[in-house]
């Protein structure tokens, strides 16, 4: 599975929560600068996979490698420092810190030798992408709107200057207009956003696919499609989300 030009590769990853198997034998890989859309219905296992990459949930079987060396069992902060930044689901920001403190926290924690100049150029990049954050930089981040919190969560990942960004449902719970504007930023692909590979986990396939080079489709914890984004057909997607026509006939629920 792993080829020499892969940046990140997952090989037959299985994740269990107690007796529940959330992800089964999932394999896919990411090349430098590539955008991968990680698609699947509720409970398909997208978040679980991203968390396993970050070291937040243990992997029951399989391997995850970054630039050829395994990052299994590494603590989340170490994974971040080796180049994988995670913007978690549900716009989690550190509400007790201001916007800029959130940025500075990651900016410094992700690279122990970050200089003042590194930090300032990081701020600059973030504020250029999200001018709203600049306006609110001294404000407690708990007081931001949902869309602004999502911007902050993405900007924070940028501050770590990663090689791989894991974006978990940046559109979740946002008004379409806000989703549009966040995707507009993501599609610029300049600076860090341009250099880093991105794994974009989304339920809604269409928007993510406009951005993605590759698609990875999950159905109840199993990878049912991994290939060029442009070749993913609507049937495949529907089948993954709703079950195949026969399954629907049989009346079994497609997703939990």
């Amino acid at each position: 599975m792993h080829t020499s030009d892969d940046l990140l590769s997952l090989t037959q990853v299985t994740i269990r929560y107690g007796r529940v198997e959330a992800v089964t034998d999932a394999s896919f890989s990411v090349r430098p600068g590539e955008v991968v859309a990680l698609l699947g219905a509720n409970g398909a296992g997208k978040t679980s996979l991203l968390k396993s990459i970050s070291g937040l949930v243990p992997v029951a079987a399989g391997d995850i490698r970054l630039r050829g060396s395994s990052i299994l069992k590494k603590r989340p902060e170490i994974v971040l420092r080796s180049g994988i930044a995670h913007s978690p689901e549900g716009r989690r920001v550190v509400a007790s810190l201001t916007v800029e403190e959130n940025l500075e926290l990651t900016g410094r924690a992700s690279r122990r030798r970050a200089t003042r100049a590194d930090l300032l150029s990081g701020f600059e990049e973030c504020y250029e992408l999200f001018p709203r954050l600049f306006e609110r930089r001294q404000q407690g981040s708990g007081l931001l709107s949902g869309g602004e919190q999502q911007m902050l969560a993405i900007a924070r990942a940028i501050m770590a200057r990663p090689e791989v960004m894991l974006l978990d449902e940046p559109s979740m719970g946002l008004a379409p207009i806000m989703t549009q504007s966040i995707y507009a930023v993501l599609s610029k692909r300049t600076g860090t956003l341009g250099e880093a590979a991105i794994i974009l986990a989304e339920q809604g396939a269409s928007l993510a696919l406009t951005l993605a080079d590759t698609a990875c489709l999950l159905k109840r914890g199993e990878v049912v499609y991994h290939g060029p984004a442009s070749e993913l057909t609507a049937e495949q997607t529907v089948a993954a989300y709703m079950g195949t026509a026969e399954e629907r006939q049989a009346g079994s629920p497609a997703s939990p």
Binding site: S54, P76, E77, R81, R92, L97, A109
Partner: peptide, 12 residues
């Protein structure tokens, strides 16, 4: 504030 989130942000 949030132990898990902090670790995602690089804090041990």
């Amino acid at each position: 504030y949030d132990r898990e989130l902090a670790s995602m942000l690089g804090v041990g």
